[in-house]
Design a protein around this nucleic acid. Structure first.
Length: 641
RNA sequence: GCCGGCGUAGCUCAGUCGGUAGAGCAACGGUUUUGUAAACCGUAGGUCGGAGGUUCGAAUCCUCUCGCCGGCUCCA
């Protein structure tokens, strides 16, 4: 067999063997750093007997591909530590995840922060004891017997569900054995830099009908530096938390007298909302959208017909009954826009596409435990749109929506995004109409392909009425947010009896594309606050410039400068408070005001302002007219500063 | 909704064994007249999230409740 090292070197080994044995007999040094291998691009275990003609690539511990393997191994170490401290704890599952790993346990008492410290200490012991991970393959009966003896009821449940013919394997390290597919690192001593992060309740298999287990999250890295950097990023994310910044910058509040998930926006917060919405509104108008308004309440009956009632009644606020008729606060716009389409009379194919956009505040009864700052609220203002078109317009309409999405994301400096194609799952809420689903899915795929958009299909993520292309944008901290979405719907228009007269003179059902660009104003604002760390681009800043007179005697001149800025629509303020200049600069700085305009004798004499940026940069003195021109360009170009 | 944690002044937090609430910042008043990230002095501010209970006495102990945080799940 030919073994390739990460540095490109290769060596050969005669005959078939377990990779581990190959390493033992050829290069023992490698045992310290090799944690996995790939055979034909697929991860393989050290314990698998490889054929003589195999070509394997070794993965060393510092490779990104190695992470899930050693993180998963650390989850075993965690389980081992739990078992040592709480012998009757039952094991559930313990996978590697994007940022680390977790393990779910069924324990009598939930873990406390002290438990976590103890567990960390115990894990360090296990690592120090450096047990090899040993794989054993057993028959189903043996596995059943073993797990029964161990009283691992959750593992037994997992075993039952393994498909017939599947190899059943256990991994043992020291005093710990676990049903596990693998692969694993060679020994517990290979990764030393890890941290347990938090404890949380988690339902067995994510189903609230099941028992609540205790989940412990942790992470692991190869080097101490990587771990520290990860923890630093978490700190950074905490500093950028929009809930904290929203308060610090005075943008929005929640009041328990108003209700959970119902944010209140201050004048500063509302101006940002207004600017965000105006921007998208203007863009949409240019893209041929028409803005409509369909109010806040709808008869429940409409949602029964559209299918929303069956699928989302739990997410609607309870009904208001008037003379026996139930009304609902509007949880989505689609049926309203479709009714508007109908009321506007007979539509000719010549009228299509019709693009109805609306910034409507929708009310969704999110479960209390799910609310979170602005990213999850009960009053959401969606930048929603429904495009009524003919089947052969789908592709061009999709392209148009895609361009709009791209342009807006770029303006907000989301440089990277990926697309998830959310498809119907085999079971669930989906409307049963294979023909329409087939058409919709084919049309959406064709539209993505025609625009050369790469996507990854995910089954079971579609809306009940059709497939979706969801855009996941990456922010400056590398976190992903699902913002934009474009969806194809053949179902609702038919259910609600929408029609148009086609070229053949007959009645046809239009297709509806649902799309949102920023998603919702509230959520997007929350994301933006974190993306920009509260330092909004000039065009979005609630206060764009603050004038700072050095002493009282410069106040009249400062007032004049302020008026000049205001007269051209710049959002400027004057800070003539009885504080030192340094103090007022610091204050403006903490408020992330883009421009600080210091005026003293020199500036007054020359009709100037001394321009300081919130970055700390000093642009020196500029004529007032020059600065006005300067900031107006920055605003028009939507520059950061 | 469920599991766990947390609620003390506008903000950040201290408050011992149950003995009746404190700091810094912010605010306000004054002094200072300031040249690029915190001048100085003073004043005011709290039903300790809410309700009930135990106790001679509760921020502190117990019960319920509301809100927030970390997750689970879902997101038309």
């Amino acid at each position: 067999m030919i073994v390739k090292l990460p540095d490109g070197r290769t060596f050969e080994y005669a005959g078939s063997a377990k990779l581990k044995d190959v390493l033992v007999t050829t290069d023992r040094q490698l045992l310290k750093t090799v944690i996995g291998a790939k055979l034909n691009g697929e991860l393989v275990d050290f314990h698998r007997v490889l054929p003589a003609d195999a070509k394997v690539e070794l993965i060393t511990i510092d490779s990104p591909e190695a992470r899930p393997i050693y993180r998963h191994s650390l989850s075993h170490v965690l389980a081992q530590a739990v078992k040592r401290l709480i012998p009757n704890a039952k094991l559930a599952i313990g996978p590697a995840i994007d940022d680390g790993f977790y393990y779910d346990f069924d324990v009598e008492k939930p873990f406390t922060p002290e438990d976590i410290e103890k567990l960390e200490a115990e894990m360090k012991k296990v690592i120090k004891e450096n047990y090899p991970f040993e794989r054993s393959e057993v028959s189903r009966d043996e596995a059943h017997k073993l797990l029964s003896e161990m009283k691992e009821s959750y593992k037994l449940e997992l075993l039952e569900e393994l498909p017939p013919g599947e190899t059943i394997s256990f991994y043992k390290d020291g005093d710990f054995v676990d049903l596990c597919r693998g692969p694993h690192i060679l020994g517990t001593g290979q990764v030393k830099h890890f941290k347990l992060l938090n404890v949380a309740g988690a339902y067995w298999r994510g189903d609230e009908k099941n028992k609540m287990l205790q989940r412990i999250y942790g992470t692991a890295f190869y080097t101490k530096e990587e771990l520290e950097q990860f923890l630093h990023m978490r700190e950074e994310a905490k500093k950028r938390d929009h809930r904290k910044l929203g308060k610090d910058l005075g943008l929005f509040y929640f009041s328990e007298h108003i209700g959970p998930g119902l944010p209140l926006f201050t004048p500063k917060g509302e101006i940002v909302r207004y600017l965000m919405e105006s921007y998208v509104r203007e863009k949409q108008t240019r893209y041929g959208y028409q803005h409509v308004w369909t109010g806040h309440m709808v008869k429940e009956e409409l949602y029964r017909r559209s299918g929303h009632y069956d699928n989302y009644v739990d997410s609607m606020f309870p009904p208001m009954i008037d003379e026996g008729i139930a009304f609902r606060l509007k949880p989505m716009n689609c049926p309203s826009h479709m009714m508007l389409y109908k009321e506007m009379g007979t539509h000719s194919y010549r009228d299509l596409p019709l693009r109805f956009a609306e910034f409507a505040t929708l009310y969704r009864y999110e479960k209390s435990g799910e609310l979170s700052g602005l990213t999850r609220v009960r009053a959401v203002t969606q930048d929603d749109c429904h495009i009524f078109c003919t089947p052969d317009q789908i592709q061009s309409e999709f392209s148009l929506a895609l361009n709009l999405v791209r342009e807006v994301l770029e303006t907000y400096q989301f440089k990277d995004y990926r697309v998830r194609l959310s498809l119907r799952g085999s079971t669930g809420k989906y409307v049963a109409d294979d023909e329409k689903w087939g058409k919709a899915t084919t049309a959406l795929k064709a539209a993505l392909d025609a625009n050369r958009v790469k996507y990854e299909p995910v089954e079971g993520e579609a809306a009940f009425y059709g497939p979706k292309a969801d855009f996941l944008a990456t922010d400056v901290l590398g976190r992903e947010w699902q913002l934009s979405t474009i969806q194809v719907d053949f179902i609702q228009p038919a259910r609600l009896g929408l029609e148009y007269i086609a070229e053949d003179g007959r009645t046809h059902t239009p297709v509806v594309l649902h799309r949102a660009v920023t998603g919702s104003t509230e959520r997007f604002l929350g994301v933006l606050i974190e993306h920009y760390a509260g330092a909004f681009p000039v065009w979005l800043s609630p206060v764009q410039a603050v004038v700072l007179p050095i002493t009282d005697k410069h106040a009249p001149y400062a007032g004049k400068v302020l008026e000049q800025l205001k007269s051209v629509g710049v959002r400027a303020e004057l800070d003539g408070s009885n504080n030192t200049l340094n103090y007022r600069i610091r204050h403006a700085q903490l408020q992330k005001t883009p421009y600080m305009l210091v005026v003293g004798d020199r500036e007054q004499q020359n009709e100037q302002v001394a321009v300081r940026l919130r970055t700390g940069e000093d642009l020196g003195a500029k004529g007032v007219a020059e600065f006005v021109h300067f900031i107006q360009n920055k605003i028009a170009d939507k520059e950061l500063i």
